[in-house]
Simulated assay, not measured.
Amino acid sequence: MSPRPYNMGRRRELVDETRARILAATRDLLVAKGMVAIDAIARQADVSRATVYYQFGTKIGLLEALCDELAEGGGMRRIAEAFGQPDARRSLHMFVEVIADFWAVDRECTRRLRGLAALDPDVGEVIAGRDARRRAAATAIATRLDAGPLFAPTLYTLTSFEVFDSMAADRPIREATTAIRALLDAALAIPPSPSTLNC
């Protein structure tokens, strides 16, 4: 009997372990030193620079994988459930809850990533792409609510990490959810005036 199936399974396991070690090193260096440098990450993960590139292709690929890991840990897969709610207001509320859980999963790492986005073009590209998805989701929810032209940017702004992080302060970030939902409900209740739309 050929040992090949076992060997392939073990190889896959080693690849997964290496990948996890590189992602952990990326996260740790980002939080501790505020940097995403491939050489430093390779040293921390005890792999070669070539292994990092083999696993992730590019620095942007590594950053995307780190963000995907945060999204998985934060339950972003539930976003489809939020959009699937038959009631548009319930969809809005659940969207805010899902975003809050995502921002809560590793605040220090997210804070570092978003701060570094202004200084590192690769980080900036990844964060801009993620923000564009949230902006598109906010627009879809606003359209479903028939909420007017200012609601989508309001929803996008109020579901930003910076707003959640600031409102929660040193408390669990999920505590900001109720206040943000209340602000959004209030925004829905106030029709925009013509003068506001023209400014």
Score class of each variant (00 low, 15 high):
Ala71His: 00
Ala71Ile: 00
Glu72Thr: 14
Gly73Tyr: 05
Gly74Asn: 06
Gly74Arg: 06
Gly75Cys: 04
Gly75Lys: 01
Arg77Ile: 01
Arg77His: 12
Arg77Asp: 15
Arg78Glu: 15
Arg78Met: 10
Arg78Leu: 14
Ile79Phe: 06
Ile79Val: 15
Ala80Val: 14
Glu81Phe: 13
Glu81Gly: 05
Ala82Pro: 07
Ala82Gln: 08
Phe83Leu: 14
Phe83Arg: 14
Gly84Leu: 05
Gly84Pro: 08
Gln85Ser: 10
Gln85Thr: 02
Asp87Gln: 09
Ala88His: 03
Ala88Trp: 06
Arg89Gly: 00
Arg90Gly: 00
Arg90Lys: 11
Ser91Val: 06
Ser91Trp: 03
His93Gly: 12
Met94His: 11
Met94Pro: 00
Phe95Leu: 14
Phe95Pro: 01
Val96Asp: 00
Val96Ala: 05
Val96Leu: 02
Ile99Leu: 06
Ile99Thr: 14
Ala100Lys: 00
Ala100His: 09
Ala100Val: 01
Asp101Gly: 14
Phe102Tyr: 15
Phe102Pro: 00
Trp103Arg: 04
Trp103Met: 10
Trp103Asn: 13
Trp103Ile: 01
Trp103Ser: 03
Ala104Ile: 05
Ala104Glu: 12
Ala104Leu: 01
Ala104Gln: 15
Ala104Asp: 09
Val105His: 04
Arg107Phe: 00
Cys109Met: 07
Cys109Phe: 03
Cys109Asn: 09
Thr110His: 04
Arg112His: 04
Arg114Ile: 08
Arg114Phe: 00
Gly115Asn: 09
Gly115Arg: 03
Gly115Phe: 01
Leu116Glu: 11
Ala117Gly: 11
Ala118Lys: 12
Ala118Ile: 03
Ala118Cys: 09
Ala118Leu: 14
